[in-house]
């Protein structure tokens, strides 16, 4: 879709404000050059735009450095709110693949008016965090503090809870996405070998590169690690039964509701009955019915052996 001149300018303004906000939250100083670099825009355009931003009371100059005013901060937060709400919407209400959430939200963040944002927030049940674990600013501009440090900073044997996953750069995120990690999942660091970090995530041992581990944030788990008896449903062999503990936080939207509706709720007893001639899917006996689930889905269901 072609944007009008005025819209193009507004998009640029909003991106600059977002960049300044990002610099501030990372504790680095923003300059014209950093903005141009981050946004991939020529310095001349930034230089032309800035006086207008200063004039409008959104940005202040401190020497070479650029800082957001209170008004500018509010504007930036509103754009971020739109972005994170839209990502949550994509995750919960559409079948959009994980890798596309960010790209689409980058476009939509400039289109959602504050009123539209509020409606979207209402219809999503006013979520506090987006699917990556980033806090969604409230309509009042408040932001919940976010805890956590990179996974790579923890040592073997520590029990953690994932709080946040970085969605850029895309290649690294796609690695994280493949593991289907999500904020709220419990994991235990097992160790590090040949540049890869081994972790046990809710009963499943997985590996990730150190680059990716850098971009997954976690805190020490207050409630300890997963029990030794915890498994994923996909690990239950035919004929065995297990008790459901819950569904992975990574399983969202209609996929999650469908599983809940079918009776995949904590306490349900599931029995792996038989699998198809090609080895997948597997039929599970659940609350008096027989339900076929693919391996990927069974992997999203946390169970304990009984």
């Amino acid at each position: 879709m072609r944007l009008s001149k005025g819209d193009q300018r507004r998009v640029l303004v909003e991106d600059v404000l977002k960049h300044l906000h990002d610099c501030r939250s990372r504790g680095v100083s923003a300059t014209e050059a950093s903005a141009g670099g981050a946004l991939g825009v020529g310095l001349d355009r930034i230089a032309k735009l800035l006086p207008e931003l200063v004039e409008a009371g959104l940005v202040e100059r401190r020497g070479d450095c650029l800082e957001l005013t209170v008004a500018g901060e509010g504007y930036a937060l509103s754009v971020i709110r739109a972005h994170r709400l839209y990502e949550t919407y994509l995750a919960d209400r559409t079948g959009t693949p994980l890798g596309e959430w960010h790209r689409r939200a980058e476009v939509e963040e400039h289109r959602l008016s504050p009123v539209a944002q509020d409606r979207l927030a209402d219809s999503l049940g006013n979520p506090r965090f987006d699917p990556h674990g980033d806090p969604i600013p409230t309509r009042g501009g408040e932001v919940v503090a976010q805890a956590g440090r990179p996974l790579s900073g923890f040592v073997a044997g520590e029990d953690l809870v994932v709080t946040h996953m970085e969605d850029e750069p895309e290649e690294v995120f796609s690695e994280i996405a493949k593991l289907r990690l999500a904020p709220g999942m419990r994991l235990r660091v097992l160790g590090c070998s040949r540049g890869r970090l081994r972790v046990e995530v809710e009963g499943l041992v997985q590996e990730l590169s150190l680059v990716a581990a850098e971009r997954v944030h976690a805190v020490l788990s207050p409630a300890g690690g997963p029990a030794a008896s915890q498994r994923r449903l996909s690990a239950i062999s035919l004929g065995e039964s297990a008790r459901v503990l819950g569904i992975s936080p990574a399983c969202r939207g209609s996929e999650r509701t469908r599983l809940l509706d079918l009776g995949v709720v904590p306490g349900s007893i599931v029995e792996a009955a038989f699998s198809g001639p090609l080895g997948d899917p597997t039929a599970y006996r659940l609350r008096g019915t027989m339900v076929g689930l693919r391996r990927e889905q069974a992997e999203q269901i946390f169970v304990e052996r009984i």
Partner: peptide, 8 residues
């Protein structure tokens, strides 16, 4: 429907 809780 299995339920009346979702947005489907």
């Amino acid at each position: 429907t299995y339920s009346l809780l979702s947005a489907s």
